[in-house]
Amino acid sequence: MLELKNIAASYSGIKALHDVSLTVQKGEMVALIGANGAGKSTLLNCISGIVKPVSGSIDLEGVNIASVRPWKISQSGLLQVPEGRQILPELTVLENLQLGQTALSGRAPTYTIDQVHDMFPVLHERKSQRAGSLSGGEQQMLAIGRALMGAPRLLLLDEPSLGLAPLLVQKVFDTLQALNKTGLTILLVEQNARQALNVTNRAYVLEQGRIVHEGESRVLSEDPDVLAHYLGLGAQSE
């Protein structure tokens, strides 16, 4: 469904990605893990069109989108839930969800507001509150719900667990897994490697702008190198 070939990109003048290739098949849930500053967000922003790659190609269902404007990419159903959630704090919760429909741009919706409300009841209870008044976890639900309103064909998530309490992290990952079970294709960027490997089918490990490991998540989570570099820290902090 999504195929990146030999992507190189710079961010603020620094070369952030070298020769990255990555694929996501329809219906898959894929993780991209790596340390802070490995280039994960730059890669997502390349896919979303916010950062233009210096070289390489990005194909979405056979169409090269590497030079397409970011809002056009979103309107085609490739939706990103950005790092730090980026909800619009001055708008109400409901308005944030309605704003998510902008990305439909004539395509048929796949989730109604009622379905999103059923999935995240708190968004219904607080629908006329300022979105900025929600807690971090609720804001993450809102950011995911908002993306669903835009009928995603592929959902990109940048660090959805960032800054959330462990219980909420679990809830977010459960939700993503449930969405994936209903057929939604997901590319998940995470620093929380253990959790990410637990819920995904396949994974890529990004290190200093290069893919250093790739494979089935279950296999990677037992790889000695991955264990030492990415899961070791996780084990200590738990």
């Binding site: 916010i50 980026q86 619009l88 990305a103």
Partner: peptide, 19 residues
């Protein structure tokens, strides 16, 4: 609503498909 979204956070609005 889209105008207010751009006012609040232009980048987030763009990611939601606002031109």
């Amino acid at each position: 609503r889209q105008v207010r979204a751009v006012a609040g956070n232009e980048r987030a609005a763009v990611l939601l498909g606002v031109n």
